[in-house]
Design a binder for these strands. Structure first.
Length: 354
DNA sequence: AATTCGGGGCG
DNA sequence: CGCCCAGAATT
């Protein structure tokens, strides 16, 4: 067996040899660390990097972010998913500037009070920016520690996370929590991966309980299989003689909250005929339907069967009795934060429309 | 404790 | 197609 100290040392040793160079690793600025951590929640490093670069470029400090419009923040976030992260990021930036006099919270207990900051993110900022002695427990850590110590409980249960947190906190290097935490996560990400971890070259293979009990394939399992709800969306792209169109903002507590979309009608099941313009609150007898397309859009908890149509008139201007719709020039639509699905239809059409 | 919030990439 | 990703908020 190895002592806690030996495990920690070996981890940090491994990290010195294998650490990736990542854009947020060479800063101690709590704002930049916070930004990177919010982006990386449930997001792969590769997917997050370009978003981080764009955000730092546009919002180099907390004041620039606080001063921005939410619409612009969401536009920059477009495509990353889990849009409440962006709204909470913006909200907390304003909170820090206005209520905390621009002083970034400087310890775990203050950080976790911020909207959008939970146990993982608070620990990450506290240890990376302030070298506070709190362990980070993310998906990587849960997987690695559960294997190393032979914890075979479902990985998504709070009780399991509690166990893992307690074990991990005991391992932490109190002089360098920052390095230790980075090493812990990096090891999970690069060495102790979900599928086919590199046990053959693992510095812990001799003491890894799951490995020695040949339980690796059964580790880090979730408790339940996700049930996906089916939804049926009908979107209409209206285009009139002035090349203007209608969009609407999603405000309900639902997917894509805060984003914009083409006028939508949702049905509880598949319907054979596409809704007429009047069903959208648009009255225009000159509209001709074209560019009918359908997509199957997969989210974590939903399967969206989406159909699109383009209703076009070259002779009349659009008018609507639906207060939720507002008219914009068609070529301005890309200035709005759009769900990936809407963007997909528009890009599929852009060649046709030009 | 269970559910919901996206989207991309991988085997 | 199912799984996972530097999780958190809500119910």
């Amino acid at each position: 067996m190895l002592t806690d100290q030996e495990i920690s040392d070996r981890l940090i040793e491994w990290y010195a040899l294998h650490a990736r160079i990542l854009p947020w690793r060479n800063t101690k600025d709590p704002y930049l660390i916070w930004l990177s951590e919010i982006i990386l929640q449930q997001t792969s490093v590769v997917q997050g990097i370009p978003y981080y670069e764009r955000f730092v470029n546009r919002f180099p400090d907390i004041h620039s972010l606080a001063n921005a419009e939410e619409d612009e923040v969401l536009k920059l976030w477009q495509g990353l998913g889990y849009y409440s992260r962006a709204r909470n990021l913006h909200y907390s930036a304003q909170h820090i500037v206005e209520k905390l006099k621009g002083k970034f919270p400087n310890c775990y207990n203050k950080l976790i009070k911020l909207k959008g900051v939970g146990p993982y993110t608070a620990a990450a900022i506290a240890s990376f920016a302030y070298n506070e002695n709190v362990v980070v427990v993310d998906g990587n850590v849960k997987r690695f520690i559960s294997r190393l110590f032979g914890i075979y409980d479902a990985i998504d249960l709070p009780a399991t996370e509690k166990k893992i947190r307690s074990i991990s906190q005991a391992l932490i290097n109190k002089q360098e929590p920052f390095i230790f935490n980075q090493a812990l996560m990096e090891f999970g990400a690069l060495q102790c991966m979900p599928k086919s971890p590199i046990c053959i070259k693992c510095p812990f293979s001799k003491i890894c309980i799951a490995f020695n009990e040949q339980m690796i394939p059964l580790t880090a399992q979730k408790s339940k299989t996700i049930i996906k709800k089916e939804r049926f969306f009908y979107f209409a792209l209206f285009i009139d003689k002035n090349n203007e169109t209608f969009i609407q903002k999603r405000s309900a507590k639902d997917i894509w909250m805060g984003l914009y979309q083409l006028p939508l009608i949702e049905r509880s099941q598949n319907i054979s005929d596409f809704p007429m313009p009047s069903a959208f609150g648009v009255n225009n007898d000159q509209l001709v339907s074209k560019h009918l397309r359908s997509y199957k859009h997969l989210l974590t908890h939903q399967i969206i069967f989406a159909q699109f149509v383009c209703y076009e008139t070259k002779t009349k201007a659009l008018s609507s009795e639906n207060p939720g719709l507002f008219k914009i020039p068609l070529n301005h639509i890309e200035h709005y934060a759009l769900p990936r699905l809407i963007d997909l239809y528009l890009s599929d059409l852009s060649i046709t429309l030009l």
